[in-house]
């Protein structure tokens, strides 16, 4: 009889890094049905106790766009001039930024959501994270309604070209970067709640150094320097440009594309670290 053997020993799984990476991806592939079921489960459960249902996905960007539009139109603050009408600028910026923050939070959210299960049963935690990622994609699909609405309102001021086809690609890179960075937070963030609190405080600052609400700052002031070094600036700027204006600044596009290999490498490292940390986390969280 040739039964598969399962071995548990004190050795670091990183002794054989390539095998570890392959195991992780094999586990995710094996869990594809589980991921699908978890996704449907959460989707069904999420809005069962709600009147407005999926409208809750749309309300946050609408509300914050309204707030920023109010502040700028009443001259309470001055954000400078934007290439496209300001409401469209903010709305689209918010949607892309929201995709990043959701992606960044998704590994921890998925991990927390599944911890009751994988602290007790041998289930790959990546399945729960993947389920959370699927949720972001779903939210994004719902949010295309807003984008359509923006185009309907500002049709004359926006320029819809073939580059709109690149938008999903841009969003995917943004998401990938968010997930990769978020993966790093899980092992420490699960042990120490300080991490989560720091993120909550730091996120708005990061947003103000990204051209979400303000256009890309020019010159060599502090804001301009921060924005030019911020890896998210090209993500937002290029994706928004592809959507509303056409071809984007080649320099920015290059920086943006650079994010792909960086995110992929970071993402794989993040997955590996999470796998290595898992047994140590279960001892601390699940006993």
């Amino acid at each position: 009889m040739n039964l598969p053997v399962t071995t548990y020993s004190p050795e670091s799984p990183l002794r054989n890094p390539l095998k570890l990476i392959l195991t992780i991806f094999a586990d995710i592939w094996r869990s594809r049905e589980l991921i699908g079921m978890l996704f449907v489960r959460d989707l069904k459960a999420a809005y069962r106790q709600s009147y407005l249902g999926y409208i809750w996905i749309l309300l946050p960007p609408v509300a914050s766009t309204a707030a920023w539009y109010y502040m700028t139109s009443q001259k309470l603050i001055n954000v400078g001039s934007t290439d496209i009408p300001y409401p469209a600028f903010v709305m689209i910026g918010q949607i892309i930024w929201g995709t990043f923050t959701a992606a960044f939070g998704t590994p921890q959210a998925g991990f927390n959501g599944g911890s009751a299960v994988f602290m007790k049963l041998k289930v790959p935690p990546e399945a729960f994270i993947a389920n959370s990622v699927a949720k972001i994609i779903f939210d994004l699909l719902v949010k295309t309604i807003l984008i359509i609405a923006i185009f309907a309102i500002f049709w004359g001021d926006l320029n819809l070209t073939w580059t709109v086809l690149l938008v999903p690609f841009g969003l995917a890179i943004t998401m990938l970067l968010g997930i990769s960075l978020g993966l790093f937070m899980v092992p420490i963030g699960s042990l120490y709640t300080d991490i989560g609190r720091i993120v909550v405080i730091a996120m708005p600052f990061l947003m103000y150094t990204t051209p979400v609400i303000f256009p890309l700052a020019k010159g060599d002031g502090l804001a301009a320097t921060l924005m030019s070094w911020n890896p998210l600036s090209p993500a937002i700027e290029v994706t928004r440009c592809w959507l509303t204006q056409g071809a984007a600044d080649p320099n920015l596009v290059f920086n943006f594309l650079l994010l792909i290999p960086i995110s992929l490498i970071l993402g794989i490292i993040g997955l590996v670290i999470l796998r290595i940390a898992m047994p140590h986390l279960v001892v601390r969280m699940g006993m």
């Binding site: 399962t6 071995t7 020993s9 004190p10 007790k120 041998k122 047994p279 006993m287």
Partner: peptide, 23 residues
Amino acid sequence: LKMLNGLIKPDTGSIEMWGRIGA
């Protein structure tokens, strides 16, 4: 039991199991 389930790993020694594991 948690070690047998592979949820936590031993500090010394080893555990081997053959075949499908149910808990």
